[in-house]
Design a binder for these strands. Structure first.
Length: 329
DNA sequence: TCACACGACCGCCATC
DNA sequence: AAGATGGCGGTCGTGT
């Protein structure tokens, strides 16, 4: 599909040794948006430092569309991908180019260690950012002026967004599509990519179980993981805290600190996700879905859906029922 | 739709 | 000394 005058240009910078999944994740989500709308909503441009193919850390060869030698690109969305290596020596031509592109973009950000490149370009000073947890300490020491939120897997600060892990790139991209085109398209893309976990709207852009997987393992995240697999059980603060071997008071404190959620918010999120999945994949009645996802009553489930998705369970099923979700003639 | 009871939340303080 | 943890209780929100 060729770019049209209403296309939004998404520029992706691929550093040396880029993690191939990050490039693929971002491209595939935006490409799927184009496919589903049968329109070029997004024009995707991959840029590397030098012309010619680059090798991702996995060995996969990627052929960028352009190199930075072609000059800064005006982009709607500018994303710097990361690699498993922290960029040590970043040339001035790269940082200048990144700064120029970010300056022109409506929004810009980084995935994983891409945050280091934004930092080298002077774009995270005084800003709230995150990165892959494994590199958080180094980011903090290299860029002491940045307000690092190491335990968050997605942080947005005005035009700037950063995300933690590799797989989070998909959720990040979905969140951007959702911002532009609304929840239904984002959900539909997620469904096609078999990414059932995306949590639409709300404070964090991430699903409960994804969040539990994404941070440093701890007894808290283990308890959350367990909860996300057992939505139909009783999930009171007391039960979750016992699972994490700590007092209810301390459990909710840690949850607030590490995930920005209260226990009740987390549980509701888990239950809505579970119910959504059942609504999409099964023909269980609303009553059965309600029960299987741990809601006490239909009324409770309905309210939770309205709160989080803005639609009722019935409407949700009508929209995302079994079968193709692509707009087909 | 409404009232009520229960659970969740959070500030505060003690303790480790 | 400072940070993490646990318990108490008033208030609020929410499920039934």
């Amino acid at each position: 599909m060729a770019a049209t005058d209403h296309s939004r240009r998404v520029v992706l910078f691929a550093p040396a040794d880029v993690h191939s999944l990050e490039i693929a994740a971002v491209m595939d989500v935006f490409h799927e948006a184009n496919t589903q709308r049968q329109d070029t909503l997004y024009e995707l441009v991959v840029v590397a430092e030098h012309a010619g193919p680059i090798h991702a850390s996995s060995g996969l060869a990627i052929m960028p569309h352009r190199s930075i030698g072609d000059g800064p690109l005006s982009a709607d969305t500018f994303v710097v991908a990361g690699s498993y290596r922290i960029p040590r020596h970043v040339s001035k031509s790269v940082t200048d180019w990144i700064a120029a592109c970010a300056g022109m973009a409506r929004r810009y950000g980084a995935v994983c260690t891409g945050t280091f490149l934004l930092g080298a370009a002077g774009l995270i000073e005084g800003r709230r950012v995150t990165t892959h947890w494994h590199y958080a300490a180094e980011l903090a020491s290299r860029f002491p002026g940045a307000k690092l939120q190491a335990d968050d897997i997605f942080v947005r600060d005005g035009r700037l967004f950063t995300s933690a892990g590799v797989s989070a790139a998909i959720d990040l991209s979905l969140a951007l599509v959702q911002e532009d085109e609304g929840l239904p398209l984002a959900l539909s893309i997620a469904r096609h990519m078999v990414m059932y976990l995306k949590r639409p709207g709300g404070q964090s852009q991430y699903s409960a179980s994804l969040a539990a997987q994404a941070v440093r393992p701890s007894s808290v995240s283990a308890a959350l993981q367990w909860a996300s697999e057992n939505a139909d059980r009783k999930l009171s603060v007391e039960v979750l805290a016992a699972r994490a071997a700590m007092s209810p008071r301390n459990f909710s404190r840690r949850l607030a600190r590490d995930f920005g959620l209260t226990p009740a918010q987390f549980v509701e999120q888990v239950r809505v996700e579970r119910a959504r999945r059942l609504l999409e994949d099964t023909r269980l009645s609303l009553e059965q879905v309600t029960h299987a996802s741990g809601f006490g009553s239909l009324a409770t489930a309905r309210r939770a859906f309205l709160r989080r998705l803005g639609i009722t369970m019935k409407q949700y099923r009508e929209r995302f029922r079994l079968g193709p979700t692509r707009d087909e003639p």
